[in-house]
Design a protein around this nucleic acid. Structure first.
Length: 269
DNA sequence: ATGTCGCCATATTGGCGA
């Protein structure tokens, strides 16, 4: 069972590329972030024609998340909790596969610049995510929290440390909060797979900025993650970062600045 | 830090967010 996450930077601007990729890769489930549209403008029919069910939590212009699934989707939840939050950044649902998976798709706040309320919002959002993550573990289900975390977990997850020392993606408090999620009992799928089989072609980045020639210079960072509950981690079989998607074009469509990351779980009993 | 994107208002460009 293939479970993907992809920050697409506008689902409608990216649609031809997305359809090509979904047709080729055939993930069973995919979380999308930064769809940048309201629910009514999400291209449901295009994805349905490829065999996907859609659950959408959209917003005008910014943010917005969605879950696509070849299996039926149930128990859809939009938003982390009851706290007031005018950003659409979290959607969760149960994927009704033979072995059901609870899937949380998240777009964590960027938080820059760090001396502002944007950074405080990121830290608060991390506290709220931790509370939800902690609750989900009590269910003792196969659970995956995946998305654009806007967190660079370690020094190995960037090409050079200096430019990031004052960036919200690499602050000690933010990295500590990510470690805290792992301390609860979640496994970072990339780290776990790295321990088993190394990094294919040496790449571990999931994002390359549009600016300053970051992509041709391979100045990337790893910020798109899958966190697996113990029940899901026990079934981790593979993880593939689709680096080639960063160079994809399709007619007039340009690539996202993020690439898809696909986790494969075994379905044997 | 910035060589770029995408969205939107009320446009034919500029502000915003990333």
């Amino acid at each position: 069972m293939k479970i993907a996450t992809w920050n697409v930077n506008s689902v409608n601007a990216r649609l031809p590329l997305l359809l090509e990729w979904f047709h080729a890769v055939q993930p069973d489930v995919c979380g999308l972030q930064e769809i940048k549209c309201i629910d009514e403008k999400f291209p449901v029919e295009a994805f349905e024609s490829l065999g996907y069910n859609c659950a959408v939590h959209g917003q005008k212009s910014y943010n917005g998340v969605a879950i696509l699934s070849k299996y039926p989707i149930s128990d859809v939840r939009k938003g982390l909790d009851d706290e007031e939050d005018d950003h659409a950044r979290y959607i969760e649902a149960v994927i009704e596969a033979p072995k059901p998976v609870r899937f949380g798709c998240l777009y964590l706040p960027n938080g820059n610049p760090i001396a502002t309320d944007k950074y405080a919002y990121k830290l608060r959002w991390l506290e709220r995510l931790r509370a939800r993550a902690e609750y989900l573990l009590t269910l003792e289900e196969m659970t995956i929290l995946a998305g654009d975390f806007n967190i660079i977990p370690t020094k190995d997850d960037l090409w050079k440390e200096a430019p990031w020392l004052n960036d919200a993606l690499y602050q000690p408090a933010v990295r500590h909060a990510y470690q805290g999620l792992k301390n609860l009992g979640y496994t970072d799928a990339f780290e776990a797979q790295l321990n088993v089989s190394g990094t294919p072609e040496g790449n571990r980045y999931t994002f390359w900025d549009y600016q300053a020639g970051a992509w041709p210079k391979n100045e990337g960072i790893r910020i798109d993650h899958h966190l697996l509950s113990p029940q899901a981690a026990d079934r981790l079989f593979d993880l593939v970062i689709h680096k080639d998607a960063r160079g994809m074009t399709h007619d007039e469509a340009k690539p996202s600045d993020h690439v898809p990351v696909v986790v494969e779980l075994t379905t044997k009993s």
